[in-house]
Design a protein around this nucleic acid. Sequence first.
DNA 1: TAGATTGTTAATCGATTAACAATC
DNA 2: TAGATTGTTAATCGATTAACAATC
Lengths: 210, 210
Amino acid sequence: MEQKSIVSMAVVRRLPRYLRHLDELHKIGADKISSTALAARMELTASQVRQDLNCFGCFGQQGYGYNVEFLRQSLADILGLSGPRSAIIIGMGNLGHTLCNNFSFSRCGFSLGAAFDANPAVIGSVVAKIRVLDIKDLDKYCSAHKPDIAVLTLPAAPAPAIAHRLVQNGIKGIWNFTNTDLNETRALVENINFADSLMTLCYRIKTSNL
Amino acid sequence: MEQKSIVSMAVVRRLPRYLRHLDELHKIGADKISSTALAARMELTASQVRQDLNCFGCFGQQGYGYNVEFLRQSLADILGLSGPRSAIIIGMGNLGHTLCNNFSFSRCGFSLGAAFDANPAVIGSVVAKIRVLDIKDLDKYCSAHKPDIAVLTLPAAPAPAIAHRLVQNGIKGIWNFTNTDLNETRALVENINFADSLMTLCYRIKTSNL
DNA sequence: TAGATTGTTAATCGATTAACAATC
DNA sequence: TAGATTGTTAATCGATTAACAATC
């Protein structure tokens, strides 16, 4: 089988982790790795590693294992990290600034084109070479530049309305840092929810006997 | 059944979302909700909602549904959000500052006790009432205050060593924002990985036909 | 009472694990 | 060749969905 028609989310979510571990292996000079060794590193089973990779093709060689550099490049291609898509940030508060300043969008397949905010104090400023525009000009910007995704780092309250407006402007994906669920069926939403994550940790500690 | 002996991670990860939706329902003045209506809101099935909640007890009433306020309080109790546990932050860069300034640890069941960094420029400063201490004093602080969890907002390179040191100091949970996997079996690790999440979105957009 | 909706058991679906022939 | 390890099929396990009796 060359490529599974539809790959499950469970597998997709492991892809960046595989890539990360292959990067690390590359850095320490490993040029091959077996499914058993990779599974041990990642706390998976060897079966799972082979099943996961075989959703996308045959990357290994019997009796040898996987070539680190080849698998690394293959995973980057599968994820689509080289053809950069365009992104905009909505909300230049503390978190928006942090992402502009310290996060590498390019390593994840995106290039950041502009930022938006409603606060006159930040509109017009430039953060890490990104100009902060007035949220009023969002539609105009979208018509002109057709950004692929939007990063939502604004308060939860205005988020659903902004998300809807973005989708109407042709946004394909939303990286949602707001503490609310977005009901946009016409766009792909990827949530990062700090509170949900920490509450989960709270529960896990409470119910463990550590 | 009063309480399932061990609840699956799939269910646990949905708990904060249930709580969030119950909060919203409470805010708009709803005093009851059926599993069908809650499922529609959350894009789940009614069956799943009932199965999920019944892992922890019987919170509904036949012919009526669930009382919003009662279910909300029950979920908060199940998650353990009231008995505040103590947290420390390791790494007061941009992200560490953002969390100190804008994130409500208390809403998630934690109280932030101290922050640590290796950089003399920030050591001794106070951010949102939290004193930034020298990472050299980490062991001393842990012995004295026994923090329950550590928030890792430091670079990936030193993270595994710091995590190990924290576990030796009795840390029970790690909220890991570093872009690396931690192999600490003696502590519960909750990862927030920006790059993994954005790469997943990259893949999903690439493979969708939006 | 009649209608609505839960709690719970059984059925289905999907993901993980095991096994092993193929082959480098 | 012999040993190692993949790709792939089959078996198992777990999670989701469906169904329905209980009951408010």
